[in-house]
Structure formats: structure tokens, C-alpha cells
Computed example of a mutant assay.
Amino acid sequence: MAYQLDHVVVWVADPVRSLDFYRQVLGLEPVRAEEYAAGQAPFISVRLGPGTILDLTPLTAAPALNAVPGAAGTAGNLLNHICLAMPEAEFEALHERLVTGGHRTTPYLKDLFGARGNAPRAFYFGDPDGNVFEARYYE
């Protein structure tokens, strides 16, 4: 059986502020930003690939999601990290944008295991809300 990742909810204080980071630094395209601004959507998403998005969900929505039967205490928590795989050239360009923009990154790490085996290099960085991401490429 092969599943595909559809979306991940990323908790943020201000979706519009967060969208600036995800669009300008990570280069991700917004989804439903205009609908959010018009009050027609509860959050903004950014597209990772053709079938995968990150939902930039405001922390103010956590109480309602915690009220779903069986979900008490699950909403509003940060994940350990989300790993983004990309071609090597995009990996290098992302690292440059982060460093140039004054965002902290870890030193390069080598041979980290993931969904497609070992990645030659990877690094970690955070978004403005403290969500941690790993960037990597595969050969």
C-alpha cells in the first residue's frame, strides 16, 4: 500500500505574516490567501507539490479543533519537524535565501536517512512561529 501525504497543519500566530515567510523565503505558492483575507476560509495554505499543502492555521482555531470528540489536547502543538526534499540546486538556493535573510540554520548534516534512503546533505531551520523544518536533497 502506498499513501501520499495530503496536508500538514502548521500552527501559526498570524497566517498573513507566516505566508510572507513561506512565500518569500521558501518560495511556496499560496493557496486560498485571498479567500482568507475576505473571511471566506479559516486558514491559508501553501503548496509543497501537486498533491501536498501546508495549512497555516491560526492558533486561535486550536480550541475548536480540541473540542472534536477524541481530539482533546491535540491541536495547537508544534511538530518536531517537517522535512522538505528538493533538487540540489533548490536546496542550495533555499540555504542562501535563509542565510541572506538572517534566518538561523544548522550546519550541513550528512547522510541522513529518509523516505528515499540517505540524503547526502541536509540542514534544519525554523519559521517565525518556531516550527522546525529540515531541507534535504537526494542524488
Rank of each mutant, 00 (worst) to 15 (best):
A37K: 13
H95P: 02
Y3N: 07
F43G: 03
P120K: 00
P58A: 06
L59V: 13
P87E: 02
A67M: 05
Y138M: 02
F123I: 04
T57Y: 09
R32W: 10
L5Q: 10
P87V: 03
G101A: 15
L79A: 13
A85Y: 04
L59M: 12
F133D: 02
R121S: 02
A64D: 05
E92L: 02
Q40Y: 05
F123E: 01
L79D: 07
P58C: 15
V16C: 09
N77Q: 15
D55R: 14
N131G: 08
L56K: 04
C83Q: 02
G117R: 03
T52C: 03
D129I: 12
P30M: 15
Y124N: 13
Q40S: 08
I53D: 14
Y137M: 01
K110W: 01
I44N: 05
V25S: 13
G102Y: 15
G51L: 02
T74Q: 12
E88R: 11
A85I: 01
E90F: 02
D55T: 06
Y137K: 01
P87F: 03
G49M: 01
L79Y: 13
L78T: 13
A72D: 03
E134G: 10
A122K: 01
F43S: 09
V31Q: 09
T106L: 06
V10D: 08
G114S: 06
D127R: 14
T52M: 00
N118I: 05
Y108K: 03
Q40R: 06
L48G: 00
P58G: 11
V8Q: 15
E134Q: 14
A67W: 01
V12T: 11
L5E: 08
L79P: 10
P128K: 14
L109G: 09
F113T: 08
